[in-house]
Simulated scan of single mutants.
Amino acid sequence: MSTLHWASLLLLAAFAGAVVPFQSAINVNLGRGLGHPLWATLASLMVSILVLLPIMLAMRLPLPSMAFIGKAPLWMWAGGAFGVCFISLALVLLPKLGASGFMALALAGQVVASLVLDHFGWFGLEERLITLPRLAGAMLLIGGVVLIQFGAMPAKSLAAAG
């Protein structure tokens, strides 16, 4: 893989992570306006479908195999449930923890869970053992979470103190 291709993949992955706090903050406001976070979760997922379907039609993607759909294990369909879990928890927790606090904690959870998934090669992933450097990286990230969450003081508190 060329260096340019590798760098493009890294930038795209960073972009994928960068859009999440925007999505969460926007959905918090949508949930307030709609009267409950779950309405915002539903609206977010419906907009996802409305955006994705025209793209799929423009790409002329073939229909999936009905044989696969009928025999796929149930765990393969859990991604949507995890998406609902993340969106809904973001709507509830982001206003309480702040965008940086929530995202830091969510990222720490993602990294720890990812280390476990990689280590055991679950769900068809290639095994990548938890090594000392990888564990140290996770611990540094968790240390960063502590600094981000507990080093933050709401601007209102700073104004009152000054």
Rank of each mutant, 00 (worst) to 15 (best):
41 T>S: 11
136 A>R: 00
104 A>E: 01
146 V>K: 00
115 L>H: 04
4 L>V: 15
13 A>L: 08
53 L>N: 05
127 E>A: 14
31 G>T: 08
143 G>M: 08
65 S>Q: 05
20 V>W: 07
123 F>R: 13
4 L>T: 12
99 A>C: 07
79 G>Q: 01
95 P>W: 04
10 L>D: 05
12 L>D: 00
7 A>L: 15
4 L>Y: 13
150 F>S: 12
77 W>H: 07
91 L>N: 12
105 L>M: 06
6 W>Q: 14
99 A>Q: 08
159 A>P: 00
85 C>N: 09
129 L>Q: 11
103 M>T: 06
126 E>A: 15
114 S>K: 02
113 A>D: 02
44 S>E: 03
71 K>F: 12
59 M>A: 11
144 G>S: 06
161 A>T: 14
158 L>F: 00
11 L>E: 04
80 G>E: 03
127 E>L: 10
1 M>S: 15
139 M>D: 00
66 M>K: 12
61 L>F: 10
26 I>L: 15
97 L>Y: 02
120 F>I: 13
23 Q>I: 04
103 M>I: 06
56 M>K: 14
73 P>E: 10
111 V>W: 04
69 I>W: 15
63 L>S: 12
146 V>E: 01
160 A>G: 09
40 A>Q: 04
96 K>D: 05
58 A>R: 12
138 A>C: 09
4 L>D: 08
52 L>M: 11
55 I>P: 10
156 K>T: 12
118 D>C: 06
48 S>L: 14
161 A>V: 13
80 G>K: 03
69 I>H: 12
137 G>T: 03
154 P>N: 07
86 F>D: 04
142 I>A: 06
57 L>E: 10
119 H>R: 08
64 P>K: 03
12 L>G: 08
79 G>H: 01
21 P>A: 07
97 L>E: 02
142 I>V: 08
78 A>K: 00
47 V>T: 11
54 P>C: 10
20 V>T: 13
113 A>C: 13
124 G>T: 04
96 K>S: 01
160 A>K: 14
15 F>N: 09
40 A>S: 07
33 G>M: 10
88 S>P: 03
118 D>M: 05
121 G>Y: 02
138 A>K: 02
16 A>P: 04
30 L>M: 13
123 F>S: 05
132 L>H: 12
128 R>K: 12
65 S>L: 02
107 L>E: 01
13 A>K: 06
28 V>G: 07
113 A>S: 15
150 F>Y: 09
48 S>E: 06
14 A>P: 00
119 H>C: 07
16 A>M: 10
66 M>Y: 11
147 L>V: 10
35 G>Y: 06
76 M>I: 05
69 I>A: 15
138 A>H: 07
16 A>W: 09
29 N>S: 11
13 A>H: 00
104 A>S: 02
142 I>W: 02
3 T>R: 15
42 L>H: 09
90 A>Y: 01
46 M>P: 00
21 P>R: 03
29 N>D: 13
78 A>G: 08
29 N>C: 01
20 V>A: 13
161 A>N: 07
80 G>T: 04
18 A>W: 05
84 V>I: 11
150 F>N: 00
127 E>P: 07
133 P>W: 01
126 E>R: 13
83 G>F: 08
118 D>K: 05
103 M>W: 01
120 F>V: 15
50 L>C: 11
66 M>Q: 13
54 P>H: 05
83 G>S: 05
108 A>C: 05
39 W>Y: 14
34 L>C: 05
69 I>V: 14
123 F>P: 04
